[in-house]
Each structure stands twice: as C-alpha cells, then as structure tokens.
C-alpha cells in the first residue's frame, strides 16, 4: 500500500516518536509512505482563531502539494492536522467561490481530489492487507483507547467511525492481543492547544481522563494525537498538581503498541522519549507472557 504522507510539525518535533514508530511499523506492514515535498504547517488551532481564510489556505497548500504526487490517499497522522485538512476539503468543496480565492492565495493548482485519511483507518487497512499474522509478541495489556476530539468530530465532516463511541482503535488493539476497555472518556477533550496558554485548564481536563482510565483498570492509554499525548504525558506534573494525586499510567501512541506487538524494540519506537516511563508496563508484559506460557 502506497500513500502520500504529511507528518506535520509536531511529528518532526516534540512528537518525533510518533513519526519514528509510524515509520518503523510501516516498513513491517508494507505501508509505503511518500512524504509530501516542502510541506508547510497547517495552522492548527491558531489559524482558525485568527483568520478564516488563512485557516483554509495553509492546509490547501499542503493538499495542492499532495495532489502533485499523484497518490490518491494522504495519510495525516496528527489528528489536529487531519482535522484541519479534511475540514478544508469539506468547506472548499461546498464553496467554489472560496475555493478559487484560496487557489489564488496559495499560487498552486487545487483540485481537492486527494482523500485525507487518519492513521487509524490507514493502519487498519494496511494491517489487514498484510501484517496482522506477524504478531510476534502480543500486546497483552488492558488498554484505554483515547480518541480525543479531532478524529471523530465534526461527524459530518470527518465521517469516521461512531462519533460518540468509536471502536476502530479498539479493534486495532484487539488485533495485536490487547484488551481494550470500555471507558467513558474516549472522545472527551484534553484541552488541546491550550497547553501553553491555559495550562491549569488542560491539567484539570487531563486529570479527569486519566482518573477514569485508571479507575477502570487500564495499564496504558493509547492515543493517535500528538496534542493529546503532549498534554497527558508531558503535562503529567501539572496534572498531578491539579488532581492532588499521582498517576503512573503511561500514554503510548497507537503505532508504538503495534510496533511492540510486531516485535520492534522500545528504542526503535521512541518509547524512551516519553516523560512517563513505559518501563514498568513492558516489564509486566514479559511477566504476563511467562504466566501465559505456564498456564
């Protein structure tokens, strides 16, 4: 399977382990990622706070560059970028006048014929086409799949999964031997881009998410969004301060969990880059698989 690839700013910066693990997994499951040349930032949450036109033009430039590759599918692993890109396609398709205005701004041809796809749907397809038989080391953990806002909302625009109770990540986890839990905060907001400007609010929202996951016996959270990861992992100190308690539960990218199950090492998957240590979890995995062997 060959797809266009737009990593986005986070994946080449603070979320580089998402990129690393995605690349590593892709190699194993024969998912060919063709990076869009000379891509720019999508504008994320600041773009649409400042200027509607700008918030469409920045993603449109990426879409236009992606069209040049001739690949039909464009994988956008960062869910913030995914949301901006797919919203841009939706809005410009519905409004030809706006579309031509944007085309002028980006100084590039724009057909809007690429299919913007998130990491969950692409992984599922690629694994079904190829890899799930190669599970070397089942990821035998109780996991809370955390989708956040941007993968499933607005339902009309993204048209992905069941907006209130999505299951695609749970299915991926099941396929690698994990036990996805039924929990209540799958699609609640973590505070997203407010991490710098309103840290205390983000901490409060994240505390509720971690609290529910822990209470239901999750060993790790699984996410597909660099912003969710940053807030739940990097902001752990602030979260603990807000909650008045400690949380040891790690937060992993969906690609890291899959990578482990496919037999990749923690270092290849960038697990050492997390603030919250995944070590105890991985140690427990070794133990539990021993138990499995004995029984």
């Amino acid at each position: 399977m060959k797809v266009g690839y737009f990593p986005g700013c986070s994946l080449v910066g603070s979320a580089r382990e998402f990129n690393e693990s995605l690349q590593a997994v892709s190699r194993l499951i024969k998912l060919d990622l063709v990076e869009i040349p000379d891509w720019n930032c999508c504008g994320a949450s600041s773009g649409h706070a400042a200027d509607h036109l700008l918030s469409l033009a920045l993603p449109a430039r990426i879409l236009a560059l992606a069209e040049k590759t001739g690949l039909r599918d464009l994988l956008v692993p960062c869910s913030a970028c995914y949301n901006r890109l797919i919203t841009t396609v939706y809005e410009l398709q519905a409004n030809p006048r706006l579309k031509s205005e944007v085309r002028e701004l980006i100084e590039l041809d724009l057909k809007l014929d690429v299919r913007v796809r998130n990491v969950l749907e692409v992984l599922k397809e690629a694994m079904e086409a190829d890899g799930s038989s190669r599970i070397a080391k089942p990821f035998a953990h109780r996991v809370a799949c955390y989708y956040g806002c941007l993968l499933v909302r607005p339902p009309k625009v993204v048209q992905f999964d069941r907006p209130e109770d999505p299951t695609s990540m749970d299915e991926l986890m099941q396929a690698i031997g994990a036990e996805p839990l039924d929990w209540a905060f799958k699609v609640e907001c973590c505070g997203a881009g407010m991490t710098l400007a309103r840290t205390e609010l983000v901490a409060k929202l994240c505390a509720r998410i971690l609290d529910d996951a822990v209470a239901r016996g999750a060993e790790t959270l699984i996410t597909a969004c660099p912003m969710c990861h940053a807030n739940l992992d990097m902001r752990r100190g602030d979260i603990e301060k807000a909650a008045g308690r400690t949380f040891t539960i790690p937060v992993m990218y969906v690609t890291q969990a899959i990578g482990l199950a496919l037999g990749l090492g923690p270092k290849e998957l960038g697990l050492h880059r997390h603030m919250v240590d995944c070590g105890p979890l991985l140690a427990a995995a070794t133990q539990s698989s021993t138990v499995n062997l004995q029984s």
Partner: peptide, 11 residues
C-alpha cells in the same frame, strides 16, 4: 477565547 474547538457542542 477559552473555547477549545473540541466540537462536542456542535456534534
């Protein structure tokens, strides 16, 4: 300004 654009309301 505090709105997170999480889109829960509109959904």
């Amino acid at each position: 300004w505090q709105c997170l654009t999480c889109q829960t309301c509109s959904a």
